[in-house]
């Protein structure tokens, strides 16, 4: 069955499907129940599944994650919503010190099937602490898996797959796309496995690598470049830990050029790891250094100038030009 959905609706439908499929799935977070979340992602779920399964928690991120660990130990699959990216740090200790390590520490006896949903990224004109991209900090932490959706169809399937996964998954949702582009979501299709990247546009001159909010940007860049006779391949990484780079290596071996695009600050961002792996695996195929288009190495700026901070079409196309002219 095909339904037209925004990303917000797709996530809501995906969460609903996961709750229907498994009574051990719980939602918890600030304002997620009666209100349905500030972005309305859990809208209607408490009404339909009850207060024991969709839990309005106190404003206490560390305790939200810690109690999720206890629930997971007793067989539940908690889905914790962090209201905004910048609010995750009070929970950082629980995530890094407990969630990520318990399966390992218990020698595999104690799985941690927790999903940590984080609306991330900028572009909505928000105040400080509301536009951050913390993915590298989690991807750097062994024991966590990290994924980012970029499209309503992926959002619908990936959230269900993340909940069904037995490992903890940091699930990043590009908040500026929640109520943006709609898509026809086939709720009976067979989705690709969760921890796989996907080519969203084929091309032969250069490989653009993106995830979350920058996938749309790179699709637009590829379209613009095609008018100049350049053929850009766009790969949506989808999974940041583990990385699924075989399709990336295959692409770069064909194109010889790669540009990674993310909103997070450039230094030690995802682009750094991806560039390192590409040069290791595709060294003789590369015709130019792997370039990165990213946020600047500063705190996220006041929203009035966020458009200058965020990667945009010009910066992506400029990097494409520089790579191809190398």
């Amino acid at each position: 069955m095909t339904t037209t959905m925004t990303m917000a609706k797709a996530l809501n439908a995906g969460l609903r499907a996961a709750m229907e499929a498994d009574p051990k799935v719980l939602m918890m977070g600030e304002d997620v129940g009666k209100l349905g979340g500030v972005f309305r992602i859990t809208d209607g779920l408490q009404k339909d599944f009850g207060e024991d399964r969709v839990i309005d928690t106190p404003l206490a991120e560390s305790a939200i994650l810690g109690t999720a660990v206890g629930l997971a130990m007793r067989g539940y699959r908690p889905v914790c919503e962090i209201q905004f990216d910048g609010f995750v740090y009070p929970a950082y200790d629980q995530i890094v010190s407990q969630v990520a390590k318990i399966h390992f520490r218990s020698r595999g006896r104690m799985p941690m099937p927790i999903v940590i949903r984080i609306p991330f990224g900028g572009g909505i004109g928000a105040v400080e602490h509301h536009s951050e991209s913390p993915e590298a900090q989690f991807a750097h932490t062994a024991g966590l898996k990290v994924v980012a959706c970029s499209h309503p169809t992926d959002a619908y399937w990936m959230i269900q797959q993340a909940i069904a996964a037995d490992d903890p998954v940091v699930f990043l949702e590009p908040k500026r796309q929640y109520h943006g582009e709609k898509a026809e979501v086939d709720t009976e299709a067979t989705p690709p496995p969760l921890f796989t990247s996907r080519t969203v546009r084929e091309g032969s001159d250069l490989t653009l690598l993106a995830y979350g909010p920058t996938v749309r940007l790179c699709r637009d860049a590829a379209l613009a470049a095609s008018e100049e006779g350049r053929s850009l391949e766009v790969i949506d990484l989808r999974t940041l830990s583990p990385l699924d780079l075989e399709p990336v290596f295959a692409s770069v071996r064909r194109t010889g050029h790669a540009v990674v695009v993310h909103e997070a600050a450039r230094s030690l961002g995802m682009g750094s790891e991806i560039a390192a792996r590409i040069q290791q695996e595709c060294f003789y195929a590369l015709e130019a250094p792997v370039l990165r288009v990213a946020g600047f190495d500063t705190p996220y700026p006041p929203s009035r100038i966020e458009e200058e901070y965020l990667p945009d079409l010009d910066r992506v196309l400029d990097a494409v030009d520089r790579s191809l002219a190398y």
Binding site: G86, E128, H129
Partner: peptide
């Protein structure tokens, strides 16, 4: 200097130690 905005209306001249959108911080 325009870098704080509403969440950082921190006038250090009147003894403010600053504000934060991270609740409790």
């Amino acid at each position: 200097g325009g870098k704080g905005g509403s969440l950082h209306l921190a006038d250090f001249n009147v003894g403010s130690l600053g504000e934060s959108g991270i609740v409790g911080s």
